[in-house]
Design a protein around this nucleic acid. Structure first.
Lengths: 154, 154
DNA sequence: CTTTTTAGTTAGGTGAGCTTAACTTTATAG
DNA sequence: CTATAAAGTTAAGCTCACCTAACTAAAAAG
């Protein structure tokens, strides 16, 4: 057993080990569905964080409104996203996943995380419990961090 | 306290929470250095896994040898990668990071993982220790999995 | 020694994402 | 009511990753 790494180093090593693998899985799935990564990312955000408008797209992905508009247009054409007027502000649009969109993201998650299953069989129950707890702590901390930053902006 | 999630679900949630953030950090840094993501990814792989050849590039990134050659060419031009003949097989090329290349990746890691530090201050020492241990287990498991697959191929 | 396979490069062309600039439409300020 | 700001779209053009196809050179097979 090696000397335990410091927290930040452990997180970095894990990230580097895991990212390439994870990204590749996504890309393959998206491509198989005829979508690019940026397009699929939008679907994911809509799935996980709910409806939002065009301006949100350009902010979150750090692209111009023009680019956002074009990306979303393709998703609408493909039938994965519904784009309707915001009743509160008729300039704005509200983006929503269609049923097909939700299905796609869910299906992607199932297929893409096949390697998670492969990983799971190599670990015993006790370790898995520890890891689950650790990841939940991390996830919670990230969410708090994001909420705090959102507040600071406003 | 919510009921603990199952291992695979915890891993998925963590991934989704974290990936967007992580990728954006990389992209920004790479762009600031005048590099694209695929280019920077190659630098990372060279930094973490050591020297390899052209064929490895096209395999790992699932692109044609032609595309690999073009990507690497740009990195050579930029002075981040050294491409020399393999003495064992004069057809093959050996790719190595130059000092500038190593520096770049290290600098990227420092800047990009700024959010890790922000995360660290929100957790107490005991939790961080648990998380570190958990991530190390995960990292080890992934590495074993990869090695096994590499063997199966051969 | 000839043939075939392997490693890599070069050239030409395609497609996607992105940007700037000009525009429409709706909301807000003075 | 007019002027300005904001949300989004459209058009034109750029860049870059990627592919196919044709090529060179070295190794391996026969």
């Amino acid at each position: 057993m090696t000397k335990p790494l410091h927290f930040d180093q452990a997180l970095r090593v894990w990230t580097d080990t895991f990212m390439h693998r994870s990204m590749n899985g996504w890309k393959q799935f998206a491509k198989a569905c005829g979508l690019s990564m940026p397009q699929f990312s939008i679907l994911m955000q809509l799935h996980h964080k709910g409806a939002f408008g065009m301006s949100e797209v350009s902010e979150r992905f750090e692209i111009t409104p023009a680019a956002a508009s074009q990306l979303v247009e393709k998703l609408v054409q493909s039938g994965y996203v519904q784009r309707e007027e915001d009743p509160k502000d008729r300039r704005a649009k509200l983006l929503n996943l269609t049923d097909a969109g939700h299905d796609l993201v869910r299906r992607g998650a199932r297929e893409r995380y096949h390697w998670v299953d492969e990983l799971a069989v190599r670990l015993n129950e006790a370790d898995k419990a520890k890891i689950s707890a650790a990841l939940e702590m991390l996830t919670k901390a990230v969410k708090e961090l994001e909420e705090e930053k959102a507040l600071q902006k406003a």
